[in-house]
Amino acid sequence: MYVRKIGKSFLVYFIGILILALGISLMIQSQLGASPYDALLVGLYRTFGLTIGSWEIIVGSAVVLLNAVASKSRPELLALLTSLVTGIGIDTWLWLLGEWLIPDHLLERALLVILGILFTGIGIAIYLESSFAPNPMDRSMVILTDKTGWSFSRSRAIISIVFVVIAFFFNGDIGIGTLLNALITGFIIQWIRPYVLVILYKHPVPKANASQ
């Protein structure tokens, strides 16, 4: 029974990360700006080479170590798994989409941004429900909130600004998509989460959400 529960948790986690990686890839393909974190990954790729997914693994691992230092605890090895799976997923999606999904017009790029933000929100909503492995960035926000007493949203905003500033110096993928991602993704996660619970655990959709 325990093994089946862990297996289902990992499957939900993997599907969520896969969808999240698709959303990230669509944002990158749009050329209108990626999320603050992913904008830095693209900037590092443009500056130093390697692949965007490789930088996801490298930067994610560095964040895990910084989190351990800040919280004075051991590094969370499962958080490294999140960076690894996400990095491989990004490179795989970019390889699959890169040859034919090249937008030529602004309308096409805008559509990719919308789809990218939507899939990003859906992916995060799914993998969060698995409770299988933490995300290094989410852990950073929790640690910053604990250390400063700020709200989670304020900590998230501060960290996002820091990544955008660093991405700027590395010719990162900053644009209107970056701003939209920061503003909208949280609402998508909140909106989609009840329906994820219905699909995964047969929980009823709250009336407040069902009526929206």
Rank of each mutant, 00 (worst) to 15 (best):
I114N: 02
N135C: 02
G53R: 01
L26W: 05
M137H: 12
G149C: 09
I57G: 06
R4H: 05
I189Q: 09
I24N: 13
A133G: 03
V113P: 00
L106H: 05
T51V: 01
S211L: 15
V42T: 11
K8R: 15
T82Y: 03
I124N: 07
R109C: 10
N67G: 12
I117Y: 09
F132C: 10
P103D: 10
T92N: 11
A79L: 03
S140P: 07
S151D: 10
L50V: 15
S131F: 05
S61N: 06
S151L: 06
S160M: 05
L179S: 06
W55H: 12
I19A: 06
G123Q: 00
W191S: 15
P206W: 09
V142D: 08
T82I: 01
G121V: 09
L180P: 06
L41I: 10
W95C: 13
S61I: 01
G121H: 03
L26P: 00
F119C: 08
M137G: 11
I19Y: 02
V164D: 02
G87S: 13
W93Q: 07
T178A: 10
V196Y: 04
S130T: 14
I122V: 13
P194T: 14
A133E: 06
D104N: 09
D146A: 12
D138G: 01
Y127K: 05
S153T: 14
P103W: 04
E99C: 05
G53I: 02
V205N: 08
D38V: 05
P136D: 14
H203C: 07
K5C: 04
L66H: 11
L26S: 09
R139E: 07
G186T: 08
G116N: 14
W55P: 03
F170V: 01
L18I: 02
A210E: 12
S61Q: 08
F132N: 08
L96E: 10
I192T: 12
I19P: 00
Y195K: 09
